[in-house]
Design a protein around this nucleic acid. Sequence first.
DNA 1: AGATATTCCTGGAGGC
DNA 2: TGCCTCCAGGAATATC
Length: 267
Amino acid sequence: MPELPEVETVRAGLSRSWIGRTIECVELRRAGLRFPFPENLDTELTGRRIEGIRRRAKYLQIDLDDGRVLLSHLGMSGRWTLDASTSEGKHDHVVLHLDDGSISVYNDARRFGVLDLYEGESHRLLDHLGPEPLGEWDAQQLHEKLNRRRSPVKIAILDQKVVVGVGNIYVCEALNRCGISPTRLACDITIEECGTLVIEIKKILAEAIQAGGSTLKDFAAVDGTLGYFPHQFKVYGKEGDPCDCGGTVERIPQGGRSTFWCPSCQT
DNA sequence: AGATATTCCTGGAGGC
DNA sequence: TGCCTCCAGGAATATC
């Protein structure tokens, strides 16, 4: 499941191949993914040159030469494959033919992804989003958001209005590094603890981007060979394993998903 | 407004 | 081997 670091690496990979290219032909193999595609998406994209690719939260914003933006979210299993040799895979939903003769394929088994076209600054999926964790994000901002929430801190951090891009894996890892129990109420997290959380979240995301950049310098994330980064997790998926502190990693359900944590050192 | 439940979807894992 | 059930999860959406 791509989290922010994965999306950032995909952005870098796509940028290298796509920027400056013109889309010559678009094949839509179905009418939509999570949401229906906008009307005539294929012809609207045809002839457009790609001028840049930005990222907001886990959304990719592909800037086109007519001022419009192609919005792409990978959902759980979405994947852009560049220089595809075939576009006949089982879940190949969208195919772009570029003016250098290459073929880019969007594949998404679970179809939680999004592909949309918009113009201007505003989009319904972007407008409500909270701060970027790797931007000017600090303890004060986090504390203000957590302050008025009575849900567990782990659930609150997953809320895109609190901070964007921190998914289930990295919130578990960050709380473990900070020694904070995922079951604590958000409003009980002190400003000092918010400071630690902000620092650790920034660090863990930056490390993951670094790992992606070095391990996947050939942009494996978008050439179809890899869905996960070979990243070392301390608690995520480690139920029953020993924690560094000597305790044992446990798994508990929170909001219908799994939280991995160590009750010995996270209090 | 905030909390909670539901929803989308398929592949993979475990049980028998 | 095969069938069945359950689970994973981002995040919008509806409901209370």
